Amino acid sequence: MMETVVIDLFPLHTVLFPYQVIPLQIFEPRYLNMISRCFEQSQSFGICLIEEGTEVGPPAIPHKTGTSAQIISLRSLAEDKIFVFARGERRFLIRKLLQEQPYIRVEVEWIDPELPSFPGDYAHLKVCIENLLKKLPQQNLKIPQNDNQIFGLVSALLSGLRNEKQELLQLNADEIVPQMIEILERTTTS
Rank of each mutant, 00 (worst) to 15 (best):
T4H: 07
D8S: 13
L9C: 13
F10D: 02
V15D: 04
L16P: 00
P18Y: 01
Y19A: 01
R30W: 04
L32P: 06
S36Q: 12
S36F: 03
C38N: 02
F39R: 04
F39M: 06
S42W: 03
Q43I: 00
S44W: 01
I47R: 03
I47E: 09
C48E: 06
L49M: 12
E52I: 10
G53P: 06
E55Q: 12
V56C: 02
G57Q: 06
G66H: 10
A69S: 03
A69E: 07
I71W: 06
I72D: 05
L74M: 12
R75I: 07
F83W: 10
R87I: 05
R87P: 01
E89L: 13
R91Q: 11
L93T: 04
I94Y: 08
K96I: 09
E100S: 11
E100K: 14
Y103Q: 08
I104P: 07
V108N: 07
I111W: 06
E114Q: 12
L115G: 05
L115K: 02
P116I: 02
F118N: 00
F118P: 00
P119D: 03
A123T: 12
V127A: 05
V127L: 11
I129Q: 01
L136H: 11
L136V: 05
K142E: 13
N146W: 01
N146I: 10
Q149Y: 12
F151G: 09
L153I: 08
V154C: 15
V154E: 08
S159D: 10
G160A: 07
R162A: 14
R162Q: 15
N163C: 09
Q170H: 10
N172L: 13
D174S: 15
I176K: 10
P178N: 05
Q179T: 15
I183L: 14
E185L: 01
R186A: 13
R186K: 15
T189R: 15
